[in-house]
């Protein structure tokens, strides 16, 4: 086992305003980060993800404890020394005026260049390597303001990479991206961590994605708790389930994913199988019916037709009431029926 390159000892993070009392967000954090690892920092809003990232990157002083980077106390580095070991991608949108993507990545060489910022041959090599590593060679000559959000994020990652850091910290790098772009960026980070033997910390709200990609999860809870471990470890220990338990979502340990916690009021039985059955059950769950394996239920749905043209027969108390051709129509019909009855009950 290699030595961790980032270690925290009894770290407490939070705010100590000049006036007013200190607000501790989380305390007694003993973190370990290794080369080649990608860590996803998860937690509900306000749990302190950004505070932890800012503290680990030296942008905010810790309230207690110490941070060791590469065997040295983080706060003994000069700004320039720190910039050669640690780089960041922040949530704020960068507006630079007329600058090409290449020139932007070149700004990452700041901690290495002379007083006037002249790039050496080696500097340019690193810039090109960084752009190639994020697969953005085709973007190099484009002005920054012409890039899409996803392309822009790639360039910002290349810029952080051009600092040749040991640790890269990214604050919600997927926040403004669509799903394919999110997967792309996360996979890119994962690959960079492995291939360049850097440690990468990513704070994110993409729980599912983090579960599938991260080497390790750091989990901050709303009440200042902290869990660390492989995603699967945190599933088994139930840490994931408890962290988000109050947030209206439930972690399904069987399926390994989060689902929205919607207490089912009624039960239904379902005849059919395969993919149609799976999505029918999903749709029923969304509308408030829990699909049970057997037994007597008032509502029974039979899937007919084939996979390409399915239809649904709706039975109530054993009597076929309706046939629908889409799940949208099924749910609509069910809602109408039950709403009407509900109203009748009220009037009666």
């Amino acid at each position: 086992m290699t030595h961790p390159i980032l270690i925290t000892e009894q770290l407490a993070i939070g705010y100590a305003p000049r006036r007013g009392s200190r607000r501790i967000v989380a305390a007694n954090l003993n973190l370990r980060l290794h080369r080649g690892e990608m860590v996803c920092l998860l937690g509900p809003n306000g749990a302190g993800k950004s505070t932890l990232l800012r503290t680990l990157t030296g942008m905010q002083p810790p309230l207690a404890g110490r941070i060791w980077l590469d065997g040295r106390d983080l706060h003994t580095f000069s700004a320039r020394e720190l910039a050669r070991r640690l780089s960041v991608v922040l949530t704020e949108r960068v507006e630079t005026g007329p600058l090409t993507a290449y020139a932007l990545v070149a700004l990452g060489r700041h901690p290495y260049t002379s007083w006037h910022g002249q790039l050496t041959v080696r500097d340019e090599e690193v810039v090109r390597w960084a752009i190639t590593a994020v697969q953005a060679t085709h973007l190099a000559a484009r002005p920054l303001h012409e890039l899409s959000d996803g392309e822009r994020q790639r360039i910002m990652i290349a810029r952080a990479l051009a600092q040749e850091p040991i640790v890269m910290a990214l604050d919600e790098p997927t926040a403004f991206l669509d799903l394919p772009r999110r997967v792309e960026v996360m996979q890119l980070l994962r690959r960079l961590a492995q291939e360049t033997q850097r440690a990468i910390i990513v704070s994110t709200h993409d729980l599912d994605l983090a579960l599938h990609i991260a080497d390790m999860l750091w989990l901050l809870t709303s009440n200042g708790g902290f869990y660390a471990g492989a995603p699967e470890d945190l599933v088994i220990s139930g840490a994931l389930a408890t962290t988000f338990a109050h947030e209206g979502i439930v972690f399904d340990q069987q399926r390994g994913q989060f689902r929205i916690d919607r207490p089912a009021q009624r039960q239904a039985t379902l005849t059919g199988n395969g993919i149609i059955r799976y999505w029918t059950a999903q749709a029923l769950e969304r509308a408030g019916w829990r699909v049970v394996a057997g037994g007597e239920t008032e509502l029974h749905i039979v899937i007919t037709g084939d996979d390409h043209q399915p239809s649904w027969d709706i039975y109530r108390d054993g009597v076929k009431k309706q046939q629908t051709r889409s799940l949208y129509a099924t749910i609509q019909w069910l809602r109408q029926q039950y709403q009407e009855e509900h109203q009748h009950e009220r009037h009666a």
């Binding site: 942008m59 700004a79 910039a83 960041v88």
Partner: peptide
């Protein structure tokens, strides 16, 4: 002229400028 490099870093915003080593 002596501040050229810092000015370039500040194009990224103050937080980024700090992160690349600007005091």
């Amino acid at each position: 002229i002596a501040l050229t490099k810092s000015l370039n870093a500040l194009l990224l915003g103050e937080m980024y400028a700090r992160s690349v080593g600007v005091n």
